[in-house]
């Protein structure tokens, strides 16, 4: 079987090269942070993955709306891709956040509003993916997961808000120290690299979703049959 040329691999190669450059840049070419030293370098991965996780989940939300309004199956493939790539990025976000928390706050986990909301965001979307996995019928899966994604997405701002009130009562919210202007460059390179990586993953995952839809779909309609009249 001859596979069609996949344009996304081009983006993937660029993404990987840029990502490598971003790591080298962030690790060796940027001076250590004035307050936190070398530890702050993990933020060059942490912050871009946060931005991209939110961006990808926004795509999922738009696709869910798009599917319910238009019923086009392309939106469902994109939704499936976006949910899983978003979950991947959120896991990356939480892991790097946890690694950063250990030396700076001396704990692996802190019930800090941003961290907590991200964890809840992860759980919410994992629930949607599990829902997708138990539904057999293509259209039904698409409608159900779109509805669940929309409900999950509209709740997230409130989740962040409520977690913030919940914590702010006991402690002042901690925010990472201001990053010097030259360091922003490392963020930008990495953010772009992660964005391109996410695009590559999204496109690959989109194709798998499209294949699965086809497998569950009915064969083309047979020719019309002229019934015999009696």
């Amino acid at each position: 079987m001859k596979l069609p040329f996949a344009w996304e691999h081009l983006i993937g190669v660029i993404a990987l090269l840029l990502f490598c450059y971003g790591q080298v840049f962030g690790l060796f070419m940027v001076p250590p942070d004035a307050h936190m030293g070398d530890v702050a370098r993990i933020l060059f991965v942490h912050v871009p993955s946060a931005w991209n996780a939110f961006f990808v989940f926004t795509i999922a939300f738009v696709c869910a709306l798009g599917y319910l309004i238009s019923g086009r199956k392309g939106f469902d493939h994109a939704l499936e891709a976006a949910l899983e790539v978003g979950i991947l990025l959120t896991i990356l976000l939480l892991m790097t956040g946890s690694i950063f928390a250990k030396p700076t706050w001396d704990v692996w986990w802190k019930w800090e509003p941003r961290l907590t909301s991200s964890a809840i965001m992860l759980m919410t979307y994992v629930g949607v993916v599990v829902l997708r996995s138990v539904v057999q019928d293509n259209e039904r899966r698409a409608v159900w997961s779109s509805a669940a994604t929309i409900l999950a997405s509209v709740t997230l701002p409130l989740t962040y808000f409520s977690v913030q009130i919940w914590r702010s009562i006991h402690q002042i919210q901690t925010s990472p120290a201001d990053i010097d202007a030259p360091l922003r460059m490392a963020w930008r390179i990495n953010a772009l690299a992660v964005l391109l990586l996410a695009t590559w993953f999204l496109a690959r995952r989109w194709r798998i979703a499209a294949r699965r839809w086809e497998l569950g779909d009915a064969p083309p309609l047979p020719e019309p049959l002229q019934p015999e009249e009696v």
């Binding site: 057999q136 019928d137 009915a218 309609l221 020719e223 019309p224």
Partner: peptide, 18 residues
């Protein structure tokens, strides 16, 4: 006219004119 309805991977009703 030309009614068809699929269930999962098969056509339960395929092109019925009545």
């Amino acid at each position: 006219q030309d009614l068809a309805r699929r269930f999962g991977g098969r056509w339960a009703v395929a092109r019925v004119d009545l």
